[in-house]
């Protein structure tokens, strides 16, 4: 569903490429967690999949479509939750969801929108409050609702649980599981080793724009992920 082939992206003035000849596939129903320190190339990889950056070489494919050639069509098949979900403060959570859903071409009845917000963990009382009064976690939940409402086949998550409290983070894990059951392919960049081990079907440890390690779910069970991560960073 999500395919990255020999992808290289170098920023002007940078000594080394941000993403260096990367190959990666995420199948439907799979959750691939990308671990790595800041600057490892996780967000650059996601931005190439979103079509926000043009790779210097290689390509990114969504559902078999080349992102560089069909940027609009590939975006339609993706949902995305950034690390910081920034919304319109003068709209309520419900209105923000309605607006972003319409941008994605979906029109939902009020009850459906509220269902998405509730699924994302936003308490009912907050649905009609202006987002300017929301906490970071509440905004993040609206972001999750926006991604859910898009009903996409692939989901790109860039540190989605940052700002969520442990119980909200747990609810989010449940949600991801349900999405996997619906055959959604998920690529998640994260620093959260615990969540990665809990939720992912595969984990990739990225360093200097390359995947240093890839572990399957079976391997993860018997691996001390933190130790492996620290070893990879020290290497």
């Amino acid at each position: 569903m999500l395919t990255i082939e020999n992808l290289t992206k170098r920023f002007p003035g940078a000594a080394a490429p941000a993403v260096d000849n990367l190959n990666l596939t995420v199948a439907p129903g799979e959750l691939f967690a990308l671990l790595g320190p800041n600057g490892a190339g996780k967000t650059t990889t996601i931005n190439c999949l979103l079509g926000f950056l043009t790779p210097d070489s290689g390509r990114a494919l969504i559902d078999g479509l080349d992102v560089a050639r069909e940027p609009l069509e590939t975006k339609r098949r993706l949902a995305y939750i950034p690390e910081q979900v920034n919304l319109y403060g003068h709209f309520s959570g419900l209105e923000n969801l309605d607006y972003f859903s319409e941008l994605a071409g979906h029109r939902y009845a009020d009850a459906e929108l509220r269902r998405f917000l509730t699924s994302a963990g936003l308490q009912t009382a907050a649905h009609d409050q202006r987002v300017s009064g929301y906490s970071k976690g509440m905004r993040q939940k609206v972001g999750i609702a926006i991604a859910l409402a898009k009903q996409a086949k692939a989901l790109l998550l860039d540190e989605p649980t940052s700002g969520l409290d442990p119980s909200a983070s747990h609810e989010f894990s449940q949600l991801l599981r349900k999405l996997r059951e619906r055959d959604v392919a998920i690529l998640m960049a994260t620093h959260d080793l615990f969540r990665a081990k809990e939720d992912a079907t595969r984990v990739g440890i990225m360093r200097h724009g390359k995947l240093a390690h890839i572990l399957t779910a079976a391997e993860l069970r018997h691996t001390d992920l933190e130790k492996l991560y620290l070893e990879a960073m020290a290497a």
């Binding site: 339609r76 910081q84 941008l103 994605a104 926006i146 790109l156």
Partner: peptide, 18 residues
């Protein structure tokens, strides 16, 4: 500036009509 642009573009529209 307010960090909304990636989410707006990721929704599938392009910046032109917006």
């Amino acid at each position: 500036d307010r960090g909304r642009f990636p989410l707006l573009l990721a929704q599938g529209g392009s910046a032109g009509p917006l």
